[in-house]
Design a protein around this nucleic acid. Structure first.
Length: 571
RNA sequence: CGGGGCGUGGCGCAGCUUGGUAGCGCGCCUGCUUUGGGAGCAGGAAGUCGCAGGUUCGAAUCCUGUCGCCCCGACCA
């Protein structure tokens, strides 16, 4: 490809509304243009990268036994009503206004319903199982706040795969296959990914892993042990129970007047204590009543953990009215002492002594509260988020890192097949629900994550397997016949050998070409100039290193091939 | 949805306080010179100042409303 015949609108200035590096660089490199909030046009250079990514995904999915199909973005709402997800997806689901030709159409944010509908129509026998159907298709989700360029959008390209098995053992096999395929995909894309245990959330199922890439632009936190023994999403992370430090003497309970202070910070300031000396009393409602959770003042309740432990459904924050009715006090003065309710006590609270908590009386707190003495500990466990200072289950300190989720694998079980009555006949002729798994990869996020984890102040440094071009030839002297002939010959030879090569043949000064070369981040750069040719050489360097190899033009193709091989991960 | 910020040629911005000819840099077009890290000079094209009302002799500027975009938070299979 010749630069002058291609379309790469690079810009020198940083766009005013781009903040994170991947967003800034994609715009500056002429890869991307925002059309509306949460939706982007991929310009030719950006689209080449996206295509490289989807090609790798497709190859590995095929290798893992996946079968590709394509499902529509427009879904009849009836299918979503069957699984009850019109409610659970809430405002994320984009509803089209009623049309003359149809009422109730939604844009697909994911395709469990559609693929399950296909399966129940055509897969009737255990003999047709297992099967794994996948697609690479545009998804629509009404994110309330799209942000960080391509990292969080309302329209995005996703690879989604769905496995159908006869039983759990089969699902385990399908899941493992996908997990391994994901490792190969992200490895080939050159991403420093980490696979962590994830919370499967309301979608259900008993196992789930997320694939994360560390970046400050990310929205998730991953937690890992310093010694590398453990990694998990902060939603899920388990930690070493906190040891009982003991105390010299248990104080008596005493009531203190605390007018107009309801938050942990205010109370600790007023009473001159630290948040970790307080017990936070959080009240929830669920389908069958109320639930009280106790955590240390400096900790936060993890609702997912609480949900698992309490086994309730429909967990949500209680209303002020419910709280006032239960405690007999204004919101902000709840405490566990003499509270008539189901109380779940976080492990860290069980080892507290002489704590401070709400008095269940407006404008009052009590001090000298000792768990076990002043209130009964009936149910206890881990119901909080890990924080700095916690240790992994084996005692190694936990490290917190911001990251972005690029892939997620779920064991769904029969959640969708049950809801949609998607069954097959087993060997005994009885109808059984499909045992399903689902597996997603955000293609756009791979592109952004690659940039986030590989760039410098001059621009992008592409991993070679997803680079828009593998080689960029900078022909410095546009009007010099020898330079252009040498550069073109090299270009043609590389192209003939299957290398993606771009020749910068523009009528521009060398500095301009070098700046653009660094910006668009092509991994291998070949410089052909009058000066070098005068010495009988062209220069070859990789984007990631300052080392320049000077080789004879005839030897350039071989040298470039070797450099490309050395840059490619072996996966 | 709460809080904050911003809408002025393709891009980045100034002008607004104190109403009076719409400006700068980049990019673009033409010509000449230049050519190893975003060239110089000269000439030129391109803007309903987000939109709608209002105040005024007169509005980019003041007032009201509205739309859009970004950031923080809440939310996020």
């Amino acid at each position: 490809m010749f630069w002058s015949k291609f379309f790469i609108p690079t810009v020198k200035e940083t766009p005013h509304d781009a903040v994170v590096p991947s967003h800034v660089l994609m715009i500056r490199a002429g890869m991307l243009r925002q059309t509306v909030a949460g939706a982007y046009a991929y310009l030719p250079l950006g689209y080449r990268v996206l295509q490289k990514v989807t090609a790798i995904i497709r190859e590995e999915m095929n290798r893992a036994g996946g079968i590709e199909l394509n499902m529509p973005a427009m879904h009849p709402i009836e299918l979503w009503e069957e699984t009850g997800r019109v409610e659970t997806m809430g405002s994320t689901l984009i509803h089209l206004p009623d049309q003359p030709w149809r009422r109730g159409t939604v844009l697909g944010p994911t395709h469990e319903e559609i693929v399950t509908d296909i399966a129940r129509a055509y897969i009737n026998s255990y003999k047709q199982l297992p099967i794994n159907l996948f697609q690479i298709q545009t998804k629509f989700r009404d994110e309330h706040r799209p942000k960080s360029g391509v990292l969080r959008t309302r329209e995005f390209l996703m690879k989604d795969a769905y496995s159908f098995d006869t039983d759990k053992a089969g699902l385990d096999t399908s899941y493992t296959k996908m997990y391994e395929a994901y490792c190969r995909i992200f490895g080939r894309c050159g991403l420093p990914y980490i696979a962590v245990e994830a919370d499967s959330g309301p979608i259900g199922g008993d196992a789930s892993h997320e694939f994360m890439v560390r970046t400050d632009a990310g929205e998730d936190y991953l937690v890992r042990a310093e010694d590398g023994s453990y990694a998990a999403n902060v939603e899920r992370a388990e930690m070493l129970p906190i040891a009982d430090a003991g105390c010299d003497a248990q104080n008596e309970i005493s009531e203190v007047h605390t007018p107009n202070v309801t938050s942990i910070e205010q109370v600790s300031k007023l009473l001159g204590c630290k948040p970790e000396q307080m017990i936070k009393t959080i009240i929830f409602q669920h389908d069958d009543g109320l639930l009280v959770a106790l955590v240390r003042g400096d900790h936060e309740v993890n609702e997912a953990k609480l949900r698992r432990m309490s086994q309730v459904s429909g967990l949500a924050a209680a209303t002020p009215e419910q709280i006032e009715k239960l405690t007999g006090a204004d919101v902000g003065f709840a405490g566990p002492v003499k509270l008539e309710a189901r109380v779940i006590v976080d492990q860290a609270v069980t080892v507290m002594h002489n704590a401070i908590t709400g008095a269940n009386k407006s404008e009052h707190h009590i001090t000298g509260v000792n768990p076990g003495r002043d209130f009964e500990i009936k149910e206890t466990g881990d119901i909080r988020y890990a924080v700095e200072g916690d240790s992994a289950p084996n005692g190694s300190p936990l490290i917190f890192e911001k990251c972005i989720e690029i892939g997620h694998v779920f064991k769904l079980g029969t959640k969708y097949s049950d809801a949609m009555k998607a069954t097959f006949l087993d060997q005994n002729g009885s109808a059984k629900s499909f045992v399903m798994g689902c597996y997603g990869i955000g293609a756009n996020r791979i592109v952004a994550a690659a940039i986030e984890s590989s760039h410098d102040e001059s621009g992008i440094i592409w991993p070679i397997r997803i680079a828009p071009f593998s080689v960029l030839i900078c022909a410095l002297d546009h009007r010099d016949e020898n330079v252009m002939a040498t550069a073109t010959k090299l270009h043609d030879a590389l192209e003939a050998s299957g290398v993606d090569v771009l020749l910068d043949d523009r009528d521009a000064r060398p500095g301009h070409k070098f700046k653009d070369a660094d910006l668009i981040g092509v991994p291998v750069r070949v410089t052909v100039g009058k000066r070098g040719l005068g010495d009988g050489i062209v220069e070859i360097k990789s984007r990631s290193s300052d080392e320049v190899a000077k080789v004879a033009p005839d030897a350039a193709v071989g040298h470039v091939d070797r450099l490309i091989s050395s840059l490619a991960p072996s996966a």
